[in-house]
Amino acid sequence: MAGLSIQNISMRFDLPNGSSVQALKNVSLDLAPGELLSVLGPSGCGKTTLLNIAAGFLAPTEGTLTLNGHPVTGPDAERGMVFQQGALFEWMNVRDNVSFGPRMRGQKEADYGKEVDHLLDIVGLRDFKEKAIYELSGGMQQRVALARCLANHPDVILMDEPLGALDALTREKMQSLVLKLWKETGKTIILITHSVEEALLLGERLLVMAPRPGRIHKEYRLPFADLGVGKDLREVKKHPDFAVKREEILAMIWNMEEEIMGRTEAAQ
């Protein structure tokens, strides 16, 4: 079976003081190749945990995980990661960061050179190839991270709040870039965000998660990602359905937060 399949995943963290946190409970999810899924939820609902399990950094306490039919047991180049920040290698220049994956596989400049340059063109960093990472702005660094991930030809790209540290304007440009890359490369993408608008704009499918225990609360199929490819995302936001969905999801998350607050207050 092609695609990423997550079956009845549960994750419990045992804390040193003897108690435990149920970070995920019975999460199931099937992603077909080329699907773009955005995941939304209040903080602490297990989004990062879910992504770390998908990446193979954590083994779930229960449940199974397969990619294209074979089980996921650890990190692998078939599942690329884009982190919020700080995952680039400062001791390498932009181009060496992007070519890291191919180089680790033993490829030579002749094998990967053209493609790396092409990717740098796509993300708009043609003139910054030789620059050091710390000379780039936050938005440029995330573009390097995207290019580095793509240069490795992963089947699935996992992004944990990749645009979370960027300012509003840069963020909009990067959202367009993500859509463009998705359409052009046809990759399967899971994108975690805490912005409702971003989740709506970038999610072909949208998963709203609820906390304590972390679980899937509601799932949507949305037209906005397809509408937004190659367009001005501000136009998409004017879509009548967009505002309706946004209000609905905001209210949903608002209620969850209220509930958490109420529960902690009751516990005190």
Binding site: G74, A77, M81, F83
Partner: peptide, 27 residues
């Protein structure tokens, strides 16, 4: 070393010796 750097290197297909040489040592 930030764990995200190590995770990123693993996800890019690096082996343990490669992570040692290209991530941990320079970091």
């Amino acid at each position: 070393v930030r764990i995200t750097k190590i995770h990123a290197a693993y996800s890019l297909g690096a082996t343990k010796p490669q992570i040692m040489r290209h991530v941990i040592v320079p970091n």
